[in-house]
Computed example of a mutant assay.
Amino acid sequence: MIPFNKPYLTGKEAHYMYDAVHTGKLSGNGKYTKLCQQFFEDEYGFKKCLLTTSCTDALEMAAILANIEPGDEVIMPSYTFVSTSNAFVLRGAVIRFIDSKSDQPGLDEDAIEALINKNTKAIVPVHYAGVACDMEKIMNIASKHNLLVVEDAAQAIDSYYTFSDGSRKALGSIGHLAAFSFHETKNIISGEGGLLAVNDERFIKRSEIIWEKGTNRSAFFRGEVDKYGWVDIGSSFLPSETIAAFLWAQLENLEDIQDRRKQHWQMYYDGLKNWAEQYCVQLPNIPSFATNNAHMFYIVCKSMEQRSEIIQQLKDHDIHAVFHYLSLHKSPYYQKKHDGRDLLQSDRFSNNLLRLPLYYELTPQQISEIIKIITDVKG
């Protein structure tokens, strides 16, 4: 059997977790939490990093920091995971869903300004499959209308955006705030886990307070205040030290993991390109301003029927391939709240996109087998 995903262990995870236990501090913000946070700040230029128990928690922290209140409007793609929306709905926001581009599931940047009004508070671009949205365009729009930008970079670890002047920045370092995921399906994992990246200095002090359940506990332990107490809203967003220890083992092997995933991705692309052109199947598009972190390899079939046939053929050979999001504007929860605009590309990706197995231990022979089964499907 070839599963859709298989979590990869570098070999050091259990050792570091054991070491974390023996430090005598398991509740978080210890040795491994600090190592991980410093890694992200040094490697990717984030101004402040805080590990969280999930990307969902990081997004919820971002919504609090953005001071989202009932009636505020937030613009985001409909083709995304529910956590992107939930984080802001929990604060009372009205979500204005935007369509995907025709050649890539990320949001259509050219459709953003038409949705902006006096109630708009934030834009939440989602870097689908780790491929950058046009962040220069988005940040210019945000600056023009005095809006905050929260990057949903759940899938975008170690991926970059190139600006028109040739400069390059890591995804998650461009918006005011950003959220990452270390769920077991991501490139770098800790089972469950996430990260809030804070790039606007206005939010740094408060982010730490929200992270520590609304207390100034971190400042107290640094000797900055004489005592700590409840000074703001917050929650239990801080993960345990064992989660951070597991993550540290992954980060030490980031380059190796990324190299292997990129090899797998390229093998899929090269093996499917001619078939895809012949049978009107869309392969991933990497814009000139984006890099590929090989988080995912997907195909967009010409119809739901074609996708179903490919899924069945793979299943018959014990290979697990899966579709992805259902458009949030058509979800049972939100469809009556949506403003009625058709989001045709989002629906097309919901109906036709298929994700193929992609993980570190996948072999070239297995990828070749998957490619052969798919390319045997004619039309």
Score class of each variant (00 low, 15 high):
residue 134 D to H: 15
residue 369 E to R: 13
residue 127 H to M: 03
residue 169 K to Q: 14
residue 107 L to Q: 01
residue 271 G to R: 05
residue 189 I to E: 01
residue 220 F to G: 05
residue 110 D to N: 15
residue 215 T to Q: 04
residue 320 H to R: 10
residue 339 D to I: 06
residue 232 D to K: 07
residue 264 H to F: 02
residue 278 Q to P: 00
residue 249 A to V: 11
residue 10 T to M: 12
residue 297 F to N: 00
residue 140 N to G: 13
residue 341 R to C: 05
residue 63 A to H: 02
residue 290 A to F: 00
residue 322 V to Q: 13
residue 273 K to S: 14
residue 120 T to G: 06
residue 291 T to E: 05
residue 215 T to H: 02
residue 297 F to C: 01
residue 6 K to A: 12
residue 52 T to P: 04
residue 246 F to C: 09
residue 252 E to L: 15
residue 35 L to C: 08
residue 40 F to M: 13
residue 42 D to M: 05
residue 304 M to T: 13
residue 112 I to C: 04
residue 323 F to Q: 10
residue 143 S to V: 01
residue 203 F to W: 06
residue 34 K to A: 14
residue 93 A to Y: 02
residue 269 Y to E: 09
residue 266 Q to H: 11
residue 248 W to V: 04
residue 97 F to A: 03
residue 182 F to L: 03
residue 74 V to C: 06
residue 161 Y to W: 06
residue 255 E to M: 06
residue 45 G to M: 08
residue 43 E to V: 11
residue 251 L to T: 09
residue 37 Q to P: 03
residue 230 W to G: 05
residue 195 L to S: 02
residue 304 M to H: 07
residue 264 H to A: 13
residue 246 F to T: 06
residue 196 L to C: 07
residue 163 F to C: 11
residue 116 I to M: 06
residue 14 A to S: 14
residue 188 I to A: 01
residue 149 V to S: 03
residue 104 Q to F: 08
residue 240 S to A: 13
residue 246 F to M: 08
residue 300 V to R: 07
residue 77 P to K: 04
residue 213 K to R: 12
residue 262 K to G: 05
